[in-house]
Amino acid sequence: MSDVRDRMVARAAREIAPGMVVNLGIGLPTKVVNHLPADFPVCLHTENGLTGIGPTLPPEKADRNLIDAGGAYVSTIPGSAFFDSATSFAIVRSGRLDLTMLGAFEVSAAGDLANWRIPGKFSPGVGGGIELAQKARRVVVLTTHTDRAGNAKLKQECSLPLTARACVSRIFTDMAVIDITAVGFVLVEIAEGVSAADVVAATDAPLVVPDMPLPTF
């Protein structure tokens, strides 16, 4: 992982407060766990039926019956629990999930999230994504600021099919930390070596830049 992406993931890890129940989405968000101290008091949830996720294991040490929702072989820790898929989503929909960190194709200035389907290109199904986005108490997004072709992922309106409306509170990118507020995108922190003007240029919607020095990560 490039240095800036590693710093972005490390910064996102600081979003997790002691005592939280957290679901880390497939992809970049799962790497957040590598930045938490080993004894950090947090309960990680995965949709396929586990709370108290332990470290990921290599194939030779893996338990064939113990995976996370992304298919990675994980482990238990003292206090872990297994449950069926209905119970797993009762945790999500009843508001027991304090925080979820998800990937994104697009996020709108109103906090709409599109991360499950690109018509004609990528339609693998939504899995548990809609329920996580719609029902977690706080939804934050980890994503590169632009896609591989350089197109902005932060837009006034999403053009792709939505996962959920007005669900995202904060976005961590390789350029900045941006909050979604009543007035749209607000720049909160900035990556080292990046200027506010760079972030504005890479964002396809108005970005409020506070008139004060911003923290860097």
Partner: peptide
């Protein structure tokens, strides 16, 4: 037919 995962369960 795609379902949200927890809705399929329910």
């Amino acid at each position: 037919e795609f379902n949200a995962q927890g809705i399929l369960a329910e």
